[in-house]
């Protein structure tokens, strides 16, 4: 037998069936709505127009001049100058660009700047600059990062998961994190670190 393009890996779409439903509910719902907005923007705005937008990132206000279709990712990195958020694929496959919009994890590579304008945005820089956020502490304790490139996205996703599910099960973790690629293969430590972060958060809560 020879190799052919047809002999590739056949998984249904990106994700395995058992998790698909939950994944759609928890993560994609927001993207679908933003995609809809994207197309509205795309069709209603004539091409090649620059406009002024106000971005609220980490409680700071940035006024940027941009093409309405410019993905939020590039506005954050190149216009606001916050380079902690990373480009990995540009097509919502890897999660490297994950930020929070209105408290929800979203893929900034697939949201036009025009849609994100005015919304509350949090990037990795907004978690804490001094690594005091429990998820950052857990990431350090478990020594998660290797190259580190995917980790901003991983941490933003984990933070959103823990906010909604303070004591996640293994399955909760896999479901929430399966949209995030780590080429260095830090997945075993991501699992551990999310549990550690959950413990740190619980300790902090009970200390109060």
């Amino acid at each position: 037998m020879l190799f052919g393009p047809s002999v590739g890996h056949k998984k249904p779409l990106i994700f395995k069936i058992p998790h698909l439903a939950e994944f759609l509910v928890f993560v994609y719902a927001l993207w679908i709505s933003t995609y809809a907005m994207f197309f509205v923007t795309f069709f209603l705005q004539p091409n090649l127009i620059m406009a002024s937008y106000t971005l609220k990132i980490n409680s700071k206000t940035y006024t940027v001049e941009a093409d309405p279709k410019m993905p939020l990712l590039w506005a954050i990195r190149d216009l606001a100058g916050l380079t902690g958020t990373k480009y990995g694929c540009g097509i919502a496959q890897c999660g490297a660009c994950t930020v929070h919009m209105g408290g929800q994890p979203v893929r900034s590579c697939s949201i036009p700047v025009s849609v994100a304008a005015g919304k509350d945005l949090t990037t990795i820089e907004g978690l804490s600059a001094d690594n005091t956020h429990p998820v950052q502490q857990a990431w350090i304790k478990e020594q998660v990062p290797q190259c580190g490139y995917c980790q901003s996205g991983q941490i933003m996703a984990a933070t959103a998961l823990l906010k909604k599910t303070p004591n996640p099960t293994d399955k909760d973790i896999d479901t929430a994190m399966q949209g995030h690629i780590c080429r260095c293969g830090t997945y075993p430590r991501i699992r551990k670190a999310i549990k550690t972060a959950s413990q740190i958060m619980n300790q902090k809560a009970s200390a109060k």
């Binding site: 990373k86 690594n131 350090i140 998660v144 990062p145 580190g148 980790q151």
Partner: peptide, 18 residues
């Protein structure tokens, strides 16, 4: 613990594109 970890959990590590 690795000395580069703190830089890699708060977005301050400078990669090529940064």
């Amino acid at each position: 613990p690795r000395q580069d970890t703190p830089l890699k959990v708060n977005g301050t590590a400078t990669f090529g594109m940064d």
